[in-house]
Amino acid sequence: MDIRSEIVDQFTQVAQEQGIPLAPLTDDLALLDSGLDSLCFAIVVTRLEGLLEVDPFSSSEDVRFPVTFGEFVRFYDNAAN
């Protein structure tokens, strides 16, 4: 499974688990408008670390948190490559 598909999968699964309606995951979707709250993002990041064996947030002290879904995917893409 590629990184984007894994991320989509985790967004969908966590939203479903938390009973939160998820907005369509387009590249320009602002993460704050996705429907997920901070606990959901925390869960997504933890699970992605387990699945992709990469934690882009720990790679640097001053990482800028991605704002849109597209940035989020690129963030993981860059860290993985």
Partner: peptide, 9 residues
């Protein structure tokens, strides 16, 4: 576990 969003999880 340390987490960048909630501090820990």
């Amino acid at each position: 576990k340390k987490n960048p969003i909630t501090g820990s999880i």
